[in-house]
Design a protein around this nucleic acid. Structure first.
Length: 1035
RNA sequence: GCCCGGGUGGUGAAACCGGUAUACACGAAGGACUUAAAAUCCUUUGGACUUAUCCUCCGUGCGGGUUCGAGUCCCGCCCCGGGCACCA
């Protein structure tokens, strides 16, 4: 083999491009997913494409992860290092809004740019398996995941308060709220109550918490998760609530009860008052018993209106109002204690009510001081605690101690006291042990455009049917008029039509329809009225409409809607004499009496919950078009039609459609899952994707999208217009990477068995709580449904640090952004990689310094030069090459620990050693050194390593090579420096053989002139010998 | 307020289980090469005392303690970064 004598130029642009293309073309880093024998899933959190493209911080992380991956590859693992883009979501959408472009165009451009930049890292990404969350091929499975949640009862809708930015007119996620302000426009964020989709992550709180005991994650990460889940053990205790005057009597009857949660049941005897949250239902339930209700109501309203900002500012200044007229009974002391409403108690935690123990809780103490409430001490501080009684006036003891003034638990330590109290609570059926969590359900709704549409269709027909099946159908009572019966006109026909959509219809024939009497009809209608409920409908025709009003005028029953068709409600302009002459044989007198009967409109209004519809035809010969004006109904809709005369046809489609439409309007539609095979529900292209601030997402504006057929019944229905949270996209992407080739399912259980849990997961600490928790939850749920085998998704997690510039976070406005493109252009990716590795601890991050990068550039050039200088050595040989063994060992171990900075330092030491000894190496040694250098450099500077490897005459990639072995015997030097200490201070050193015995070492120490000087003739008290290190002489 | 991290030369940082504090760099100073500059190479580089590279003393945020010996362990503080924030 010929060796070049001249040193080639280090042309990083050429070299890096060459190898990057080769790796990708030859699929060197695309492992065989199905057959991998030693899988190593080397995952990094995928980036969400943002404004300026890939950030140097992303570069730092990705290349760090890659260094580990390449090392593992050389150790013989089938390393899978995938990459993708998390480009769906508010973050990306906001950026598009900011620059005034369509998100679709921005995404297309960003994708191209990001992948270009990611290629520049030179990482061993598997480019055959990329994932983009905004592509239908991906998000159809995100929707699939939603459907699984839905099917299993873990997805539900409820009204919830969300962050609302009044300036941007949009819902914000918690992360977009900085303190109390909008991340983008800095307006103060409000709370708005909207219907939202949730995932019941709280069902998994216990397991999510418990598994933290065994998963291999850094303790601080686990701690953050534990804090977020916020498990507390305690007890639930029932307090009776009584009317005050009765409370004085021992037999006071309880009118209600108040359940509290406490972590300190042992302080029950010290509970001297109670506090409930402003939202607590007790306030409304006992409205009539609370004497100062208006004052209470005023406080509650004010508290609920308070913005976050106000609450934060007022945090320490506690306010509240006593609920006068009612008292609670402390079950332990049997004493009556006052109940307060105060906003320092949160409705969302525990039961929204507390027993206040002012003697042993700071907050209760402060409140009690302010409102002069009794403070009863029930815990004795133990002797070890500070006995400083001085501070008693200012604060309280909230630690655990020994129970006092507490009857049967006196003298017990807190742990025991708790147990005893809980036993007692159980025995008396007034309480039990209880565990609560701070964790709330996961709100996955976003009223925005750029996300996967939630695959739900809202169907009212299905809702009606469901009501029928659940024996709660919408009931319709049809009341006919004068000289008719239950089946005349359109009554019988409409009955059947309404039954088709699931209503239960009654069309009774009333007595004496030729001589109608209101009392008689009322009586006949009573049994039907009894069947009706708050969702029911009454349709009255002609005199039947008067009968309807008449019936409700005397009833004590609430119904939903009333339709008065060709309504005969009493018309002062009616010419009865003329009618009597024309209607020979009819009892017009009876009709008149009924017609003109007085109505208690107030009562009728109370009984109709929803709307009243008056429908008449302008050409009706019997009904004056102005007749409705005498009606005093509050929620009235007038339908003035024509061509129907007195509505006596056998069929009337217009009437039917009107009635059905109005019945459906009042029905809460049923959420129907889109069938899996109909996925994806594609996000429709929309020119205007901006949020409007109506509380509904932009998709609601798209009628074509909204209007659809119900997948269950085929009827007209509407699509859900919320899209899902970006956290959902990223909660499962690691399952997709190994399965991107699968078209018919999101992932394959057998295949994933080999790859899960993810071997190494590295990402930002800012995602330590939410993203990791959500993906753990999703993984756990999928395991429960037998889609996966493993319960926890990430075997190992490491959070990386951030890169700053001059100590500050990089931002465009500060003008301190380091652009990776520029750096790569200037130095080449190998140099940038090495510098980023060297600048500091991977988990801590570091501060970018230009001179540091310059220094690394010099090292890389020295490395290059030194390597090729080895081509032409002619020394006699140095014999001892143990430096190679040491470097192999420490570089390998350091990379394994992600301690990259020291790995680079070891590399530098190796190069220093080589140049120091360059004259002395013989050719054989030089070859061995070159080979080792190429191999140990490979994970850190892969392109240079390939080039080295090639120059040594190898045809194949260096990443098919094994990490070199070292000889453990050579790690320890033949000799070492023995340190001699006197009283712990270093006084002398000797280079000695590694096998020196204790007595030899001790003797050497005592003979030392310097030791002798310090001894000054005295005999040492003691001599300590630490093998391989030192001798310490104690005087 | 509470809970985590972290404070080591002029700078980025090393330091295994309590055992030589400052590895490896950056910067700086001096020197070699050069007409000159860049690049490269060599030397020095925690502080004080000192003719001295010897010796001695001081030195890992501050104050104590344990130990033959403490950056490392314990107690009490200060500062910086991050998270949570009335969670009963």
């Amino acid at each position: 083999m010929k060796r070049k004598k001249t040193i080639p130029k280090y042309n990083f642009k050429k070299i890096e491009k060459k190898w990057q293309q080769k790796w990708e073309k030859e699929l060197i880093f695309s492992p065989n997913i199905k057959k991998a024998k030693k899988p190593f899933y080397n995952l990094m959190m995928f980036p969400y494409p943002s404004a300026e493209g890939l950030h140097i911080g992303g570069y730092f992380t990705f290349t760090g992860v890659d260094t580990l991956g390449r090392y593992k590859k050389m150790q013989g693992y089938d390393v899978f290092e995938p990459i993708g883009l998390d480009g769906f979501g508010i973050h990306s959408e906001n950026y598009a809004m900011k620059i005034g472009e369509h998100i679709k165009d921005v995404s297309r451009r960003t994708e191209k740019n990001f992948y270009r930049q990611l290629r520049l890292t030179g990482n061993m990404f598997d480019w055959t398996r990329t994932v983009e969350t905004y592509k239908p091929e991906y998000y159809q499975w995100t929707q699939w995941l939603f459907l699984q949640m839905f099917k299993n009862g873990l997805a539900y809708q409820k009204k919830a308060k969300v962050n609302w930015c009044p300036a941007c007119k949009t819902v914000l996620s918690d992360e977009q709220v900085i303190g109390t302000q909008c991340e983008r426009c800095e307006a103060v964020v409000e709370k708005k109550s909207l219907k939202q989709w949730f995932f019941k992550i709280t069902d998994y709180a216990e397991r999510l918490n418990k598994n933290l005991d065994w998963i291999d994650w850094p303790e601080d990460v686990k701690l953050s998760q534990r804090n977020w889940i916020g498990r507390s053990e305690g007890a639930e205790i029932k307090f009776k609530v009584q009317i005050e005057k009765l409370a004085n009597q021992p037999t006071g009857k309880s009118i209600n009860e108040l359940i509290v949660f406490t972590t300190r049941p042992d302080t029950l005897f010290g509970a001297t008052y109670m506090v409930i949250a402003p939202e607590h239902e007790l306030i409304k339930n006992l409205k009539s018993e609370i004497k100062n209700y208006s004052e209470v109501e005023k406080y509650v309203k004010k508290a609920l209106k308070k913005s976050e900002e106000e609450r934060l500012n007022e945090k320490k200044a506690k306010t509240g109002v006593e609920l006068k007229g009612i008292k609670a009974i402390n079950p332990a002391t049997n004493k009556k204690i006052p109940i307060f409403v105060a906003d320092y108690v949160l409705s969302g935690y525990g039961t929204g009510a507390i027993m206040a123990v002012p003697a042993h809780d700071e907050r209760d103490f402060e409140f009690a001081k302010k409102y002069n409430l009794p403070i009863r001490e029930v815990v004795k501080e133990e002797a070890s605690e500070t006995n400083d009684k001085q501070g008693q006036e200012e604060s309280c003891f909230s630690g655990e101690g020994i129970a006092i003034n507490s009857d049967f638990i006196n003298g017990l330590k807190a742990v025991e006291a708790k147990k005893e109290i809980i036993k007692w609570l159980r025995k008396n059926k007034i309480g039990q042990k209880k565990i609560t969590y701070k964790l709330r359900d996961w709100c996955i709704s976003r009223q925005r455009y750029w996300g996967p549409p939630i695959p739900i269709v809202w169907c009212k027909h299905c809702a009606l049917k469901q009501l029928k099946e659940s024996k709660k159908p919408v009931k319709v009572l049809i009341i006919h008029g004068f000289e008719a019966d239950g089946n005349s006109n359109w009554f019988g026909w409409l009955k059947k039509e309404l039954e088709k959509i699931g209503c239960e219809v009654y069309n009774p024939s009333l007595p004496n329809t030729l001589h109608p009497k209101s009392e008689e009809w009322r009586k006949a209608l009573q049994p039907y009225l009894k069947k009706l409920d708050e969702n029911s409908v009454i349709i009255g025709h002609s005199l039947g409409s008067k009968a309807t009003v008449d019936l409700l005028s005397a009833a004590d029953k609430k119904i939903k809607q009333v339709f008065l068709v060709a309504s005969a409600l009493g018309n002062p302009r009616r010419d009865w004499a003329k009618m009597k002459a024309e209607w020979i044989g009819s009892d017009v007198d009876a009709l008149k009496k009924f017609w003109e009967k007085k109505v208690d409109w107030k009562r009728v209004n109370e009984n109709i919950v929803g709307k009243t519809h008056i429908i008449f035809s302008e050409d009706d010969p019997h009904i004056d078009p102005e007749h409705y004006k005498i009606v005093k109904l509050e929620d009235l809709e007038i339908q003035r039609w024509s061509g129907h005369q007195h509505f006596v046809q056998f069929q009337n489609e217009k009437l039917r459609d009107y009635v059905i439409a109005r019945i459906l309007e009042e029905v809460r539609p049923l959420s129907v899952a889109v069938p899996e095979k109909e996925l994806p529900v594609k996000l429709p292209p929309m020119e205007d994707f901006l949020p409007e601030g109506t509380g509904k997402g932009p998709l609601a504006k798209n009628e074509k999208f909204v209007r659809t057929k119900c997948p269950a019944c085929g009827a007209e229905a509407e699509r859900e217009t919320d899209v899902s949270d970006a956290f959902l996209d990223s909660a499962w992407y690691f399952l997709r990477y190994p399965c991107t080739d699968l078209k018919s399912k999101p992932f394959d259980k057998t295949r994933l068995k080999n790859w899960l849990p993810v071997t190494s997961y590295i990402g930002g600490k800012e995602h330590v709580v939410l993203h990791l928790l959500y993906s753990r939850f999703v993984n756990m749920a999928l395991k429960d449904w037998n889609f996966l085998d493993n319960e926890e998704p990430y075997q190992k997690f490491v959070g990386h640090g951030l890169i700053t510039k001059d100590g500050a976070k990089m931002s465009k406005s500060k003008g301190n952004v380091i652009n990776p493109d520029e750096m790569v252009e200037k130095y080449g990716t190998d140099t940038v990689r090495l510098y980023l590795r060297f600048m500091g601890d991977f988990t801590q991050g570091g501060d970018w310094s230009d001179s540091g990068a310059e220094g690394m550039k010099r090292f890389v050039e020295r490395l290059w030069r030194t390597f090729f200088l080895l081509d032409s050595v002619s020394g006699v040989g140095v014999k001892n090459l143990s430096m190679l063994d040491k470097t192999i060992k420490s570089v390998g171990e350091d990379i394994e620990k992600l301690s990259f900075n020291t790995a680079v330092a070891r590399l530098m030491e190796l190069i220093n050693w080589i140049s120091d000894n360059l004259e002395n190496f013989n050719q054989k040694e030089a070859e061995k050194i070159q080979k080792t250098v190429a191999l140990v450099v490979a994970p850190l500077a892969p392109h240079i390593a390939e080039e080295f490897w090639l120059s040594l005459g190898n045809k194949k990639s260096i990443f098919g090579q094994a990490w070199p072995k070292y000889d453990p015997r050579k790690i320890v030097d033949e000799s070492f420096e023995l340190v001699i200490q006197v009283n712990g201070k270093v006084r002398d050193r000797f280079v000695v053989n590694k096998n020196i015995s204790e007595s030899e070492a001790t003797a050497l120490a005592l003979e030392s002139e310097k030791v002798q000087n310090h001894l000054a003739g005295k005999t040492p008290k003691k001599v300590i010998y630490i093998k391989g290190r030192l001798v310490s002489v104690v005087i």
